[in-house]
Amino acid sequence: MAATVGVVVFPGSNCEHDAVEAIEALGGTARIVWHGSADLGGLDAVILPGGFAHGDYLRPGAIARFSPVMEAVGEFARSGGPVVGICNGFQVLTEARLLPGALQKNAGLRFLCREATVRVERTDTALTSGTNVGDQLVLSINHFDGNYLADPETRRRLAEEGMVALRYVGNPNGSMDDIAGICNPEGNVVGLMPHPERACDPLTGGTDGAVLIGSLLASAGVRTSY
C-alpha cells in the first residue's frame, strides 16, 4: 500500500499543493490536514509546507506553533514518525522546539528567490535515505528568514550528533556553518529551507528534489501506520 503523507495547511500556507503534486507523482498518497485538526490517524509521514503560516505575524512560525495540529505533530515525531518541515515549515519546527536553533533574516537585505546547491551531509534521515553523502542537489530557495543560527552549545551538539542533513554549496543567506537543513539526532524530523517539492518535475526546472521526496515516501512506507 502506498505511503500516505499528511500535508498540514495553516492559514497562509502556500506550498501545500506543490507538496501534494510531488508526493502523488512519486507514487505516494497525499492528504491535506487543516491546522485546526489534531488527528493524524492513518498517516505515515507529515510535511509542514512553505508559505506564511498565520501571516508570519510576530515571527515566522511563532503562532503556528500553537495550532492544534502541532501537539499531534509533536507526538507523531516523538513516536518516530517522519516529519519534514520545508521553508516556513522548518521555521515552524524550530519555533515548536522540535528542532533546535532559529531562522533569522537573511544576511543580505533581500528576500531570496533563486536556485541554490546543497550537499548531503547525512543519509540516515527521513528525507535523505536515498542519497549519498556528498551528493549535490540543485533546489530552489524562496525566503527572507532563512539564515540559520544557534547558540554555541547547540552548534556543538549539531556537530557532535551529526544533526546537519544538508549544507549549502555557496552560502546564499549567511546561514551558520552553511546549514540548509538539520534533523533531530534520530533523523526522523528534518527541516530545510530549500524546496525539494518544487524540483520533482522537469517542467519546473529540475528534478533534484525527487530523491528527497522519494526518500520521505520510503521512510513512510517502512513504518506501520500511526
Partner: peptide, 14 residues
C-alpha cells in the same frame, strides 16, 4: 530587541 549580531535588514536599510 534583536540581539547584537542578529541580522536586521530593516534597520540597515533605514
Amino acid at each position: 530587541r534583536t540581539r547584537p549580531g542578529i541580522s536586521d535588514p530593516e534597520g540597515a536599510t533605514i
